[in-house]
């Protein structure tokens, strides 16, 4: 076999992103198996991974992980370029934007739980707007807002707590395989 002339050497960062994205993809696929009453009403467990990456490695890596997750999970679930894919994509982009802003809130007061709730609201907001503009051109979609808003609060809190817990675990002595790049947030 001829040796490839192009050699791509994955950096530690690439591997890290791939690892986190893989975890997020697994969560998304597992979550797809949970039957839920309304289409689009999901716990969004993969966002736990996004939150952790955001807290430990920063926004850029969180963007990578979230978008890779949307892409790969949609391929695995046969949703790629289907309406559901664009809904997840718009939700992911909006929540990443909000996370980018929310991460600058004072750490002392706002932790992963806040980030999670805000991102969840951005997620449903963008999804409803896309659904209204493109998929269901009728104001009727907004009747779902209370349900989605409640889900955003509940799942936002739960995911935020899990992320906070995992971050605590990772920061605990001996718990972290890789030392965090950023100094620990003060608790």
């Amino acid at each position: 076999m001829t040796r490839s002339t192009i050699e791509l050497v994955p950096t530690a960062k690439d591997r890290r992103i791939a690892r986190h994205a893989a975890a997020a993809i697994v969560l998304t696929v597992a979550e797809a198996a949970i039957p839920l009453p309304l289409p689009g009403l999901k716990p969004g467990l993969a966002n736990i991974v996004t939150l952790i990456v955001l807290a430990r490695w920063g926004w850029r890596e969180a963007v990578w992980v979230a978008l890779l997750r949307v892409l790969a999970a949609s391929l695995l679930l046969g949703q790629f370029l289907a309406p559901g894919f664009f809904l997840s994509l718009s939700g992911a982009l909006a929540s990443l934007l909000v996370l980018g802003l929310a991460m600058h809130l004072p750490r002392r007061w706002f932790g992963p739980v806040s980030h999670s709730i805000l991102a969840a609201f951005a997620h449903i907001g963008a999804q409803l707007v896309v659904a209204r503009l493109w998929l269901v051109p009728h104001d009727g979609v907004f009747y779902l807002l209370p349900v989605f808003a409640l889900a955003a609060v509940v799942f936002g809190i739960v995911n935020g707590l899990v992320a906070a817990r995992l971050l605590q675990e990772l920061h605990a002595p001996g718990g972290a395989a890789v030392p965090p790049a950023a100094p620990l947030p003060e608790r």
Partner: peptide, 27 residues
Amino acid sequence: WRALIRPGDVLVALAGLALCVHAFVSL
């Protein structure tokens, strides 16, 4: 678990709930 929640988180959660109630009442 409670130690993981910071003061601002409570405010954000309450604001979220208020938005839910508002959406429910108005819609």
